[in-house]
Amino acid sequence: MSFYLIVAIFMVGIWGLIAKDNLIKKIIGLNILNSGIVLFFVYIGSFQGTTAPIMEKGIKDVVDPIPQALMLTAIVIGICLTALALALVLKLYQKYKTLSISQIEKMSKDE
């Protein structure tokens, strides 16, 4: 069940990235896409009945910590990308006074 939910989130992200005209919404789509992947990685490592990977006495079944460690890095990269993309969108808005990609493309057609 949760696997299909993750696929759905992934698809929503792709749809947002491709179909939305607003630049900010595109970036939100990208973030949803990344969240889908993060969820997928967390889903890979975890099974029912397992606990957090903190090694204390009496704890046996832990989830696989590697995907979670990887995802930490991926989230950091996602933040960098989002920040950079937002900065670019800000500059685009200052230049073209609109956030719609179709209008920006129309305006810069003859450049």
């Binding site: 933040i79 920040a83 937002l86 900065a87 800000l90 200052q94």
Partner: peptide, 12 residues
């Protein structure tokens, strides 16, 4: 770093 990112984005 994160504070600076938000400073730059909010200010302009």
């Amino acid at each position: 770093g994160i504070t600076l990112i938000c400073f730059y984005l909010f200010r302009s």
